[in-house]
């Protein structure tokens, strides 16, 4: 009997630093599988963010650049403009993309830059220790909103995918999750679609992925999945928000 399951070539042998129950590992794997299936590993450049995925270059086996906080879309723009033949993706969290990097992502999307952004949204800053993010839910306790996010003071969580889908420039904008196996299958389809659009030089793509952060949510991995399903999914609705056709 042949092999039925193996590590994608685009993933390295390194052990990740991610916490138990964190969904970054799943998302890394989906991106790597897509890179393998499309046969583009040797012409791919990934951009690592500042946040939990800052060390992503240790886990992928393609060229990588590491951006400053929030600046990955500008960096990807620089690469893609001077080397349009390269396949470029940014991998960013919600603090990185939705807070400090909001300007860069909106303008890159609006210019229709032909790269892919994987936007991992777990409603909290991870690397810096669980502070409130622009995506933190109303009432959600974090280390900088100990009484829960007060929307009177700091407004409602930002729906990034919806915001970008409102731009007039053609793009592929979708919101997925990796909470259940059925979600993971859907998320992979979306990531593959996004990379395919890039290969076809069609449009900018953003795949928002609703994820968990058991460590900073103060929940077990299983409780985290439940909390995300009950709290995040009703607000951050899954589905295709915009396609370039």
């Amino acid at each position: 009997m042949g092999k039925t399951f193996e590590k994608p070539e685009a993933l390295s042998d390194a052990h990740t630093h991610y916490c138990p129950g964190c969904t970054h590992g799943i998302i890394h794997r989906l991106v790597a599988e897509v890179i393998d299936e499309l046969g583009v590993r040797k012409r791919t450049v990934g951009i690592a963010p500042v946040g939990c995925a800052v060390l992503a270059y240790n886990y992928f086996t393609c060229d990588f650049q590491e951006a400053a906080h929030g600046r990955a879309p500008a960096m990807a723009t620089g690469i893609k403009r001077v080397r349009p033949d390269l396949i470029v993706f940014t991998y960013q969290g919600d603090g990185d993309l939705a807070s400090i990097g909001m300007g860069e992502i909106i303008h890159a999307a609006n210019r229709g830059e032909k790269f892919v952004t994987i936007f991992v949204n777990n409603a909290v800053y991870g690397m810096t220790g669980g502070q409130m993010a622009p995506t933190t839910m109303p009432g959600q306790r974090t280390t900088t909103s100990p009484a829960g996010r007060n929307v009177e003071e700091v407004g409602m969580p930002i729906k990034v995918a919806n915001l970008l889908a409102a731009l007039q420039t053609p793009a592929y904008i979708t919101r997925q999750s990796v909470l259940k196996p059925k979600h993971i299958i859907q998320a992979k389809k979306a990531i593959k679609k996004a990379f395919t659009y890039q290969i076809e030089k069609k449009c900018f793509s953003l795949v928002e992925v609703i994820s968990t952060c058991p460590t900073n949510w103060g929940l077990t991995p299983v409780e985290s999945i439940k909390w995300a399903e009950e709290t995040l999914l009703p607000y951050y609705e899954l589905g295709e928000l915009k396609t370039p056709e």
Binding site: D63, Q65, A67, A74, M75, I79, G103, E104
Partner: peptide, 14 residues
Amino acid sequence: EVAVGYMIFGASGC
């Protein structure tokens, strides 16, 4: 100029 700085970084990095 913030974004331009990183466009330069990305391009020179490749």
